[in-house]
Design a protein around this nucleic acid. Structure first.
Lengths: 209, 209
DNA sequence: CCTATGCCTATACGTACGTATAGTAGACTT
DNA sequence: AAGTCTACTATACGTACGTATAGGCATAGG
């Protein structure tokens, strides 16, 4: 049970949307119920329908909300910092914080396209920066690498339960977060493949293609 | 609609389990129906209950089946090849092939723990190999790195829809697979962070902690 | 020959939940 | 003051789907 903003502070409509984000995030879309959402929003189930029309439309409203949010975050990050200056992944994770469970679920279901694509866009800029300091230009399009990199970064959120279990510490706890950060730094700074091995694999690919 | 083994070849029980894997994988657990599963298995819905007791138990049977499968795969890989010799990720992906959608969904829901943990085990051995050729020993436990690495590797499956959209080519198609493989090779062989940057971040972490 | 056991079907039951309807209360307009 | 619009509640409706029940049909054991 993650806590969000005080329900009193929001309009009923916003409270419903927020409750929906929580319920969808915690139980998944199918298992979440309109009645349950209405209850935590402190309204009748009829009002949910009044404002959003249907459960599906409510979900879309949630997606839209997050899409706008991630765009705002991106614009802000871009304005505030140089791409290389900070790991955009961490920023996004922090900012999407309260909604991480929803985002993770939505992404796994193939939804929230805009969220993913915006992160890819950010990633692309970051990679562009990195590419500048790279002796050998990459043969694979930046966008493809950005997409894969984004997916990898998001896997932490999407698979957080498994990660927590395997690492022996809840990743959303302070110690977990710390250990995770260290692991990420280590992984991101140490290639898993030597350039020779990479060339070898690439060669195999070329033969196949 | 992915095709599996010829339903005639299997016992009814196996056919049901296979149909369940497909339905759960394609529609998700909640949206999949016993009746639907029974239909594609070519049996009555009553028989599903007869053999598995309940929908939830049916899902558990699916998880168990995959757990056994992944263990078999791991043992075989370990017997056949040196860890460094082949990317275990690719092997697993290939072997889990027909069930990828199910696995992806199950993992995203925090299920199929054994599958994840087995992959971590494999990853650990691989990383052990890599660590040997590494000048600076990593300060972070191998298991943690293996867990994160595994999650990252699996993100391709879990987020395949987004990946396909962002890369502009279906990742499960031949070209998509090829592009993906190239991107992975490139990413795995080129660190995103320089050692200096890594040290910098690590320092920030140390100050915080 | 009989009953028992396992595989299987057809049908019925109960209910949770999305959706629809009808209606109330207050604010705003003219 | 009358009309109407919006926010909201309470209640009712319909149904999809998991589960339960009862029974058929074969093979096997005694």
């Amino acid at each position: 049970m993650t806590i969000g903003p005080d329900p009193e502070d929001l309009t009923a409509r916003a409270r419903i949307r927020d409750a929906a984000l929580r319920h969808f995030g915690e139980h998944g879309f199918e298992r979440a119920t309109i009645r349950g959402i209405a209850e935590t929003a402190g309204v009748s189930s009829g009002l949910v329908r009044h404002h959003f029309g249907s459960k599906e439309a409510l979900r879309e409203a949630c997606d839209d909300y997050l899409a706008k949010l991630v765009r705002r975050i991106n614009d802000q990050v871009r304005a505030d910092t140089l791409p290389s200056d900070v790991n955009y992944v961490a920023v996004s994770r922090a900012a999407l914080g309260p909604y991480q469970r929803y985002v993770a679920r939505a992404l796994a279901e193939g939804r929230a396209e805009i969220v993913f694509d915006e992160l890819v866009r950010m990633s692309e800029e970051w990679i562009e920066e990195i590419d500048r300091g790279r002796p050998d230009p990459s043969p694979v399009p930046r966008k493809a690498r950005a997409a894969v990199g984004t997916a990898m970064a998001l896997s932490v959120s999407v698979l957080h339960q498994h990660l927590s279990r395997a690492m022996g510490v809840e990743v959303y706890s302070p110690e977990g977060d710390r250990l995770l950060a260290q692991a990420l730094i280590d992984i991101y700074s140490h290639p898993m493949l030597s350039l020779e091995d990479a060339a070898k694999y690439q060669e195999v690919l070329d033969q196949q293609g």
